[in-house]
Amino acid sequence: MSTTISTEWVSICPDQDLLANTGLCALLDGEQVAIYKINPNPAYSQDLYAISNYDPIGKANVLSRGILGNIGDHLVVASPLYKQHFDLISGECLEDPEQRVKTYEVRRFNDEIQLKKTV
C-alpha cells in the first residue's frame, strides 16, 4: 500500500482498481468506507462518492457491493441485502429517512483514489 505525504488525505488504491459502475470497501482509521465510481455524467459534478459500508437496516458491512443508479434526482446505491436506496451525496435512506449513513470526502489524486480523514 502506498503512503501519502498529505496528513488529511489517505491513498486507498490505484484509480484503475475501481471499475466504473462499481464499488469497493476501504478501511479508514478502523472505519469501513464504501467508495463508488459512476460513469462520467454531465448531471453530476464528480464521478467518485463515498459513504459508510454498514447497512443500518440489514445490519451488515455490505453497501459497497450494491448496484449504483439514480432514482429521480437522487444518485443512489441499492443495498444488496434488502434493496433500500441510500443517497450517495447525503447518506440518507430514501425509504426510511431516519436511517442516514455517514458520508466521506473522496478524490482522485495522481491516479490514486484518496479518502479524507475525518476528525
Binding site: M1, L24, L27, Y54, A60, N61
Partner: peptide, 15 residues
C-alpha cells in the same frame, strides 16, 4: 483484486 473485504487491507470484516 475484488475478492477481499478491503481494497487497502488484508483484514477480514470485524463485524
Amino acid at each position: 483484486k475484488r475478492f477481499s473485504h478491503f481494497i487497502n487491507a488484508d483484514e477480514p470484516d470485524s463485524n
